[in-house]
Design a protein around this nucleic acid. Structure first.
Lengths: 144, 144
DNA sequence: CAGAATCCAATAGGATACTG
DNA sequence: CAGTATCCTATTGGATTCTG
């Protein structure tokens, strides 16, 4: 239907439609799924935390060790946001000293699939991107 | 696929493997595909720009109007980064006044598919997430 | 152990003015 | 038109200290 290019594939129109009628109309960023999902997973630690929990439930300090270089402060923040979104559950065991277990919900696990697609793209295209960067930087070193 | 929590769901292990041996070993964030891809698309304007270009090539000012609230400064930065990564091409027409056309490369178009999967997840789960947030905030209003 | 609280540095991003 | 340049603010995230 929309023959924009010779190799037209459905992803073109799909992306635009998911993004809605954002051109020239009333557009609310908060309601845009593109932005909302990236606000959710686009930060430094969220995806790493989700992937760590994908393997098995973790305790707080276990996560702290499992995720390289994360601070307790950022781990707390990240876990809180994920809990609030319903992507994981937090269970407190009143032992002494206390222990807390974090576990992905079904909703949280459902995020793994889109994440894997994205990661697969990253791995597949990484050599091409590295080449492109090298060429760009060589062509105009001042903009490296 | 509606059965989200299948034990041994392939997405579980796949995510962890893509992430590599990041636990307790030598881990370089720059080499982690999870972080590299999010550093690339996780910012405020990159995905919106890519999706705008998914429909057809755009000129600079055309993009500026098409993407709500973006400034010329941020558009320039975003386009430059995408060009450097080889996701789009920049063609200058020496007309008067000059015009510049930005167009996705095949590599850039290949990003649309993972993006669509992610957006589809966002749209599908948005009601569940909204509910979870409301419950969380109701349970402890101080942390809203 | 599992955080909370506080302070500080780095970066992202917005507003405005100027240019070939 | 298609940017640059400069300034400024807001947000992110790191380091440290304290607590039940």
């Amino acid at each position: 239907m929309t023959r924009l290019r010779a190799d037209n594939h459905p992803a073109r129109k799909s992306a635009a439609e998911s993004f809605q009628i954002w051109t020239g109309s009333d557009f609310d960023m908060a309601l845009c799924p593109v932005r909302s999902v990236l606000d959710r997973i686009g930060d430094k630690w969220t995806t790493l935390t989700v992937i760590a929990l994908a393997q098995h439930p973790h305790r707080f300090s276990e996560l702290c060790r499992a995720i390289p270089d994360i601070s307790k402060r950022m781990l707390t923040q990240t876990l809180r946001a994920l809990e609030r979104d319903g992507l994981l559950t937090r269970r407190v065991f009143p032992t002494k000293p206390p222990s807390v277990e974090y576990q992905l919900t079904e909703l949280g696990e459902s995020l793994l699939e889109p994440l894997n697609v994205l990661i697969a793209w990253a791995e597949k295209t990484q050599p091409m991107i590295a080449t492109a960067q090298a060429e760009f930087d060589a062509a105009d070193p001042s903009r490296g």
